[in-house]
Amino acid sequence: MRNLYIAALGVAAMTVTSIGTVFAAEDYGKYQVEDRRSGYTYAAKETQAIQDDNFENPAMLWVDDGSVLWEQAEGEVGKACASCHEDAADSMKMTGAEYPKHNPKLGKMQNLEQRINQCRTENMKAKPFKYESAEMLGMTTFVRHQSNGQAMSVKVDGEVAPFFKKGEAFYNQRRGQLDMSCKNCHGDNSGNMARANMLSEGQSNGFPTYRLKWQKPGSIHRRFRGCNKNIRAKPFGYGSEEYVNLELYVAWRGRGLPVETPAVRN
């Protein structure tokens, strides 16, 4: 009788602990801020391991390329990025976390790619890089890598507010033959499966991201285009105003998350 009593107690204790583990929220450390989780936490363990090791991470090859371009004088003025910005580790420390930014001269938002090309055409009198070219990816990956670990902190008030509203509207707008918005997957269903894929929150803190599917890094606009094609909508162009505004809104959604460039995802 007494043995039985102890056994019953044991079962009760076991039940309590198992419930405890079920309800204990997983600790994602720096990859979670409030209820926002980086895409890192949705990736497979093997994929995370590639990102964690700076040597194994193949996108570091592009970072190396970018660091060479940074020092390389080009254009009629004969200047390199380093001629003005000097050490990227200092000058570009917050850049990756703060773009897209409002450009008063243009009267609209500007993302990192456009800012680099503005510098090239206006200050260096050099040819602009093409979107998704090896040079552009090298440069953006390199620049944003300098901000690694900084908290995403785009400005969304003041003169930026109308663009932020447009980005938000784009995010919530259903589109394409499947009549789906960004929010349908990444807002309402993150953590659920879409066929064989786990839907993430669609955070942009790791871009340009090395996607194993692409076998190279790609910009956030490439990802937007892929998403838009998946819902059978006509994608917008690289660097289009619609996507830059969306980029701003998505960056705000991930506020506080650390910049992870170059991230590795499936």
Binding site: E56, L212, K216
Partner: peptide, 8 residues
Amino acid sequence: VSANPYLS
């Protein structure tokens, strides 16, 4: 074998 292969 993937592009940009890593080997250890």
